[in-house]
Measured scan of single mutants.
Amino acid sequence: KVLVLALYDYQEKSPREVTMKKGDILTLLNSTNKDWWKVEVNGRQGFVPAAYVKVL
């Protein structure tokens, strides 16, 4: 399983997205889209901007 680090806070803007806080460790589920990556955080799955996270 691939983990990513949240570099910035992100507030979800649609039901398909998830909120994350800077420093959160998320599970990367899909990174085929260069702009939006699907992650799991706190038991929820959704998209975050790829530029806001870094693969650990």
Rank of each mutant, 00 (worst) to 15 (best):
R44Q: 13
E12P: 06
D35E: 15
Y10P: 00
P49L: 04
L26Y: 12
V41T: 13
I25C: 05
R16M: 15
Y8S: 12
T32V: 11
D35W: 13
R16S: 15
P49I: 02
T19K: 05
D35R: 15
F47M: 12
P15I: 08
K34A: 15
N33W: 10
N33R: 09
K21P: 01
L7G: 02
A50D: 01
V41D: 07
G46T: 02
L28H: 01
W36S: 03
V53Q: 00
D35V: 12
T19E: 05
L29A: 03
V18M: 13
P49K: 04
N30E: 14
T27V: 15
L28E: 00
N30Y: 09
G46Q: 02
F47D: 05
I25G: 01
L3R: 11
K1M: 15
A6G: 04
G43N: 12
D9C: 04
L3V: 10
V39P: 00
V2F: 09
E17L: 04
E17Q: 14
F47Y: 13
W37Q: 02
F47Q: 04
G43Q: 07
W37V: 14
F47E: 05
K1H: 15
K21C: 06
N30V: 12
D35N: 08
G43R: 06
K1I: 13
K1Q: 12
T19P: 10
V53K: 00
R44Y: 11
Q11W: 15
I25V: 12
R16F: 15
K38A: 14
L7Q: 06
W36R: 03
Y52K: 08
T19A: 08
L56I: 07
K34N: 13
Q11K: 12
S14Q: 10
Y10T: 01
G46R: 02
S31G: 10
L26W: 02
V53M: 07
V53T: 04
R44S: 06
W36G: 01
E12L: 13
T27L: 15
K54L: 13
Y10D: 00
K22R: 08
W37T: 04
K22W: 04
Q45N: 12
N30L: 12
K54S: 12
K22P: 04
E17V: 04
Q11A: 14
V39L: 04
L29C: 05
R16A: 12
A51Y: 12
E12T: 10
V55F: 10
V4C: 06
N33P: 06
G23E: 03
E40T: 07
N30R: 08
V53L: 12
Y10Q: 01
A51P: 11
Q45P: 07
R44N: 09
A50L: 02
V48S: 01
K38G: 07
N30D: 15
N33G: 09
N42I: 07
N33F: 11
Q11T: 15
L56N: 04
V41Y: 14
Y10E: 00
D24S: 09
K13D: 08
N33Q: 13
A51T: 12
E17I: 03
G23A: 03
K38H: 13
V18Y: 06
A51W: 09
P15Y: 08
L3K: 09
K34T: 06
P49V: 02
V55S: 10
E17Y: 09
Y52M: 13
K54T: 15
W36L: 04
G23R: 02
A6Y: 01
K22C: 05
S31A: 12
L26M: 07
K13H: 12
L3Q: 15
L29F: 05
E40N: 06
W37L: 06
S14F: 15
L29W: 06
L5C: 06
G23S: 04
F47A: 03
N30I: 09
V53N: 01
P15K: 08
V53E: 00
P49S: 02
P15N: 11
K21R: 10
S31N: 15
A51C: 06
E40S: 12
T32A: 15
G23Q: 02
P49W: 03
N42R: 12
W37Y: 14
E12H: 10
T19Q: 06
V2C: 06
Y10L: 01
V41S: 11
R44W: 04
L26S: 03
T19D: 05
G43D: 08
P49H: 02
V18H: 04
L5I: 10
D24Y: 05
K1L: 14
N30G: 07
N33Y: 11
V39A: 02
K54G: 07
S31F: 09
D9G: 07
F47S: 03
A6W: 01
S14E: 12
N30F: 08
V55W: 06
I25S: 04
L56K: 04
Q45E: 11
K13R: 10
Q45S: 14
N33T: 06
I25K: 08
T19G: 11
F47G: 01
V53Y: 01
D35H: 12
M20F: 15
